[in-house]
């Protein structure tokens, strides 16, 4: 196992954990699990995943899983479900970037367009995953399902675009010099 990759996961988790614990704002429906209003840590682990691949996504997964355990006293499968959702979302974004051959430095118009579309699709996939699992386990009822998916989609999309865009535009040129950058 490569120590550097584990370090990337650890640093991503370390950065995202305080944000996942405390940086939650604009929650539209208090009490509805994972009805994220503005999930700030997502901006960080999306960016780390686009730079460093799976290891960045794993960091986000760990941070979300631990933080959801602290918040609201949610049960274990809600932690795990939220954590898996936040592992899937940045990976979906990464796959879209790979398929479209876009670059995370967002220099070209195509890159920016792919970034916006990929964030929307990733947030939708993650919202569908999290709330459908909640529905199957009887944690939420049917009317809450589409409200949860919609708030997840809007909230995560806003947060990832607001937090992630300046990070990708300003720091990717530095990250390119790292041997761990996955776009060489």
């Amino acid at each position: 196992m490569d120590v550097k990759k584990i370090a990337i996961t650890g640093i991503t988790a370390g950065l995202c954990l305080p944000l996942a614990l405390f940086a939650i704002i604009l929650v539209p429906i208090p009490g509805l699990p994972a009805a994220s209003g503005f999930w700030i840590p997502a901006g960080f682990y999306f960016v780390m995943t686009l730079w460093f691949g799976l290891w960045g996504a794993l960091g986000g997964h760990i941070a979300t899983t631990i933080a959801m355990g602290y918040f609201f006293g949610y049960t274990l499968h809600i932690w795990m479900n939220g954590g898996i959702g936040d592992l899937i979302a940045p990976l979906v974004c990464l796959i879209i970037f790979k398929v479209t051959k876009a670059r995370p430095d967002l220099r070209a118009r195509k890159d920016i367009a792919v970034w916006v579309v990929a964030v929307v699709i990733s947030s939708l996939v993650c919202g569908l995953w999290v709330h459908t699992i909640h529905l199957f386990f009887g944690i939420i009822t049917w009317p809450s399902w589409y409200i949860g998916v919609l708030t997840y989609l809007i909230g995560d999309t806003m947060a990832v675009l607001a937090v992630g865009t300046p990070l990708l535009k300003s720091l990717t040129d530095y990250v390119k010099q790292s041997p761990m950058y996955i776009w060489k």
């Binding site: 939650i24 704002i25 604009l26 937090v163 790292s178």
Partner: peptide
């Protein structure tokens, strides 16, 4: 130095967002 710089900037941005979240949570 690249990694030190990169993760320092990310931590600083996280600090700024924590401040924003603090104000947001007072507002909420």
């Amino acid at each position: 130095y690249l990694y030190v710089y990169l993760f320092k900037v990310l931590a600083e941005v996280a600090l700024i967002w924590l401040i924003v979240a603090f104000i947001g949570q007072i507002w909420m």
